[in-house]
Design a protein around this nucleic acid. Structure first.
Length: 110
DNA sequence: AAGGTGACCAAGG
DNA sequence: TCCTTGGCCACCT
């Protein structure tokens, strides 16, 4: 049944992203998988794109598969790189992040 | 109610 | 490594 406690997908995505600690990153596909939608990576990207301005969600901690920044060059790519570096995550000139060292691995079930 | 759209992804050339 | 292609899924018209 559809009831008030059912939260829409975007809200679930935002909330999960908000649990990624500073200094770590997750991939779009990983977020989707953690929410039980292993093939909904595009939906995660869309959810972050349409993030409400008044919500402080660390959208910059979500990157593409393999640790690549997927934002368009003029769509905040430089901002994401800056925010990540500011919290200690190295991003090389090509926008690559080393997932082996910086990927968020939740210790407790989400 | 059916089709368009993305801050995706994996595989292939 | 870079680009293209086909598949995907939830939200919006």
């Amino acid at each position: 049944m559809k009831t008030a406690h059912m939260e829409n997908t975007f809200a679930r995505i935002w909330r999960l992203v908000e649990s990624i600690p500073s200094g770590r990153v997750a991939t779009y596909g990983q977020i989707a998988a953690l929410l039980g939608m292993p093939r909904a990576a595009r939906t995660v990207g869309w959810a972050l794109h349409s993030l409400p301005a008044d919500r402080s969600t660390p959208w910059h901690r979500v990157v593409g598969a393999g640790g690549r920044i997927r934002l368009p060059n003029h769509g905040g790519k430089a901002v994401q790189r800056l925010l990540l570096r500011r919290e200690g995550v190295p991003v090389n000139r090509k926008g690559h992040i080393d997932l082996d060292r910086f990927q968020w691995i939740p210790q407790e079930p989400v």
